[in-house]
Nucleic acid binder design. Structure first.
Lengths: 343, 343
DNA sequence: CTGAAAGCGCTTACAG
DNA sequence: CTGAAAGCGCTTACAG
């Protein structure tokens, strides 16, 4: 198939006995082609295995059929693995291609990568963050269609998709409350991101919905959302006389710290303490013993949605609405939650 | 800069008062240009911020200046994060661009992605695996320059770079032996990959070098390299009368399982048991308590090397040697190793 | 309903 | 040492 010379539109035209103009139109549907002619062309295309050269197409048509995906550690972190996959899948279904790029969190490198993307004439870019953050897309991207993934922005002119942060916490708290817990702690961070504030709102709402009062001292904040922080802050919570019987953690990493703090305090999970995380990181949630019950971020769906919206934006800039979407997140039950007292 | 019309070679030619031929040559160096002329051209290029259009360049020159990076979960796994970064950095330094693509381990999707890459005329591809595996690059890639990353092959005609698996285990065992351990267990898997066999060879070699005898029962194999497996297999090792005082684990995930098994057996790390892993996964090695001493895979360097070799291959197919490189891997000391007896 | 021709922005023989 | 011209493989006005 891919041997020797690449088959060009000219070869197809010759084989079908028509002009290259007709081949082009038969393929693109840009103008009507007689059914008989069309079938001949399509037959030749099939037979020769012709695929239009995207370079030539891009040069002429001002479109490369390539989408850039730029992330801070997005593609290099397990968090967003499925997001890249979702984006690629959705793009393939619509004849585009996703080129992922990552700056590892370095703004300078990121700018360089974006320049590269633009230079290569990507049709648009997915600007993705690792955890729901408030961002302003770099000025570099000004002339390029952009959709934000797992990030939101003040600029109401750009579409974005993020997890329903409030809902995440509500689901977690509801799950715990339904299991009979009345003292539910919350381990989070002091960082000022939408993820952090949203989940706290959801935590309070969730307690309220369960008819439970918020006890401020049951909310513990660390400066980072790491296992180390979870461990430290968890210890405070668990050493108390009136320790919570369940803890909702900002993420799986902090939950891992809670497991460690529990072990130190000689508490068994879930018998003595129930734990819920957020992220559903295979490497952590599945690896913990017992497995961590956690709220999954629908990364795949976010990537898919974002690509489709971006492609709409590229193909119909005027009629494509600009939306900020919040995606509901499912709770994944493993073994870290049971009734208080281990019943 | 990126406003309105894109600046083309024609604009530069006009500004510099020369032909586009001269601009092209002044930039590429393909033929000599009078110094004065050259400076004028370069001045205009600078002033106008001209960058050749890669699409046009590719169409004419049969080169896209884009490299494909295809992985099985590579880009979507923390393991290889730095690899992508290394590849992108090296490519940027040489005027190329890396488009990463991932099939999430699905062969069909992978084939599709590769087809996309080829269709988009990538100059070559980096074929990367998650853990050092023996592979045969898909036939699809037959006509394309390829370099293997963290994968090796029988075909002596393709260059590859992999971690020095034997050296990894030797380093780990040496570190443990130097700390005074004499009974060093090995927790690994039954999978038949070069990583698995290489590390076992290195384990035996390391013991030998330390003047210690290999005790077969100290080698425990599970079917998968997960935390779960490490936990199960670790329990066997730790319940023995003559349990090892140190365990070298195939990877960080299994080491996490060993931590869990130790906790169950009421053993403290590192006082009662020293542990060494492989991978240096931030999410795990850093998150464990105490931090896990582990051997790091130089992902960044592997990505860099592979891109440079691939670019050499593309630019000078005949003079570029074909090599299978093994990269030495540094041990990263954290808190999981001490002298036996906790001294 | 279809085709000949221009042109996207470059590079590279071919001339001079 | 430099330039005019062909051509990479397409798409899209422009004609008919």
């Amino acid at each position: 198939v891919a041997d020797g010379k690449r088959v060009s539109i000219r070869d197809v035209a010759q084989a079908a006995g028509v002009s290259i103009t007709t081949v082009s139109h038969a393929l693109s549907g840009a103008r009507k082609v007689a059914p008989t002619t069309r079938d001949q062309v399509l037959g030749a295309v099939e037979r020769l295995g012709y695929r239009p050269d995207p370079l030539a197409r891009g040069l002429r048509g001002q479109r490369s059929y390539v989408l850039g995906l730029v992330g801070d550690r997005v593609i290099t972190t397990p968090h967003a693995s499925a997001m890249v996959l979702g984006a690629q899948t959705a793009a393939a279904a619509r004849g585009s291609f996703v080129a992922a790029v990552d700056a590892g969190g370095d703004t300078l490198i990121e700018a360089q990568q974006i320049r590269g993307l633009i230079e290569h004439r990507v049709d648009g870019v997915l600007y993705a963050r690792m955890h729901h953050q408030a961002v302003t897309p770099p000025d570099l991207l000004a002339g390029t269609p952009v959709v934000l993934v797992d990030a939101s922005t003040e600029q109401s002119s750009v579409s974005s998709i993020v997890p329903d942060e409030v809902g995440i916490a509500q689901a977690a708290v509801a799950h715990l409350a339904q299991s009979g817990h009345r003292r539910i702690g919350f381990v989070t961070t002091t960082q000022a991101t939408p993820a952090v504030t949203g989940r706290e709102v959801g935590y309070r709402l969730g307690l309220d919905e369960a008819g439970l009062a918020v006890e401020e001292s049951l909310i513990q904040r660390a400066s980072t959302a790491t296992a180390d922080s979870g461990r430290t802050v968890g210890r405070h919570l668990l050493e108390r006389r009136d320790a919570p019987t369940a803890i909702f953690c900002f993420n799986d990493q902090m939950a891992m710290g809670i497991y460690q703090a529990a072990a130190r305090a000689c508490l068994s999970i879930p018998e003595d303490l129930s734990v819920v995380g957020v992220d559903n990181l295979a490497l952590v949630a599945d690896a913990l013993d017992p497995g961590l019950t956690t709220v999954a971020i629908p990364q795949f769906a976010m990537g898919q949605w974002a690509v489709n919206r971006l492609l709409d934006l590229i193909e119909a800039p005027d009629t494509t609405p600009c939306e900020q979407v919040e995606l509901p997140c499912p709770l994944v039950a493993r073994g870290s939650v049971t009734r208080p007292g281990g019943a």
